[in-house]
């Protein structure tokens, strides 16, 4: 009651100030721990570099110089862009294939049994093997990274879809049958929103797996991309180069997490109670 009275009678500028203050506080609460992590990491690294005094552990200034060098003329963006296009294409192919397989496995026990050995194979085989095989088969073409990423990511996405389909309650399906909802309504109003909410976290894991595969393909069989650059720096024993490229990719992934996955997750879960926290 008192709060309501204060809100109603407070002059507009005071209210605005209060709102701005709250927003700043929320922003600080969200970003300070992360900034603290970066500071902690940088300090530890610097301490280690000074203590070891070895060219194998370059200090922060050297890494920063190297980082600026690769950022020159947007070179780093160009290379990360190339890697991302390959990764995303492979990921999309996996997603498109995962839906029918996952849905079939969820709905039919025979289909589940049929696909199970394949899924286990996919989960067992390291990304390195897909990378090597695809480079051998498809050479230096777009097919190599796309197919190996798709193969690497597919099993976890299939499992995600399968769990998503299975976790929709039978009661909801019965409801749709009793009310004789049209097939498109069942798809549009039930399956798509349900799987959308369920798949976001699956996609996030899948995307990080995709990165682990793409780097390998680029090391073995590509003439550009982050993986190629990492390998190039490695072969010239340029430790700060390897670190700078890793750093660049890490920052990009943070941006994607914040700019793509978080908002998508928030949107997909907006109907869930208690989903409003960050």
């Amino acid at each position: 009651m008192t709060d309501a009275a204060v809100t109603v009678t407070a002059p507009a500028p005071a209210l605005a100030r209060l709102k701005t203050g709250l927003r700043w506080r929320a922003l600080a609460a969200a970003s300070l721990p992360q900034i603290a992590f970066f500071v902690f990491l940088a300090l530890s690294w610097e301490g280690m570099a000074r203590w070891l005094h070895s060219p194998l552990v370059p200090d922060i200034a050297t890494i920063a110089r190297e980082f600026l060098l690769i950022c020159k003329n947007g070179f780093v963006l160009q290379e990360i862009g190339a890697t991302f296009v390959r990764m995303s294409l492979g990921f999309l192919v996996a997603l498109v294939v995962a839906f029918p397989i996952g849905i079939a496995s969820a709905l039919s026990r025979t289909a589940a049994r049929f696909f199970e050995p394949g899924i286990i194979l996919g989960l067992t085989v390291p990304g390195l093997v897909w990378a090597l095989l695809c480079v051998i088969w498809f050479g230096v073409s777009l097919a190599s990274p796309v197919i190996s990423v798709a193969l690497g990511v597919l099993p976890s996405l299939v499992i995600s879809v399968q769990h998503g389909v299975n976790s929709l309650s039978v009661e909801v399906i019965e409801m749709s049958r009793v009310f004789r909802l049209h097939r498109t309504a069942v798809l549009r109003r039930i399956w798509v929103p349900w799987l959308y909410a369920f798949m976001i976290s699956g996609c996030r894991v899948g995307f990080s797996l995709a990165w682990k595969v793409i780097v390998l393909v680029e090391i073995f069989g590509m003439s550009n991309g982050v993986g190629y650059q990492l390998n190039a720096q490695f072969s010239t024993q340029n430790v700060e180069g390897v670190i700078a490229w890793t750093l660049a990719f890490w920052l990009t992934m943070i941006l994607i997490e914040r700019g793509v996955f978080r908002p998508l997750e928030k949107h997909a879960n907006r109907w869930k109670k208690g989903s409003s926290h960050e």
């Binding site: 409801m175 009793v178 009310f179 004789r180 909802l181 049209h182 309504a185 109003r189 039930i190 929103p193």
Partner: peptide
């Protein structure tokens, strides 16, 4: 035209209240 009120409401949690009612108009 048959309707059921179940023991549990069996609503579609991802649709708003309004859309939960409107959805039954999308029938066969």
């Amino acid at each position: 035209d048959l309707s059921v009120v179940f023991q549990q409401p069996r609503l579609l949690d991802w649709l708003t209240v309004e859309d939960n009612i409107r959805v039954v108009f999308e029938r066969d």
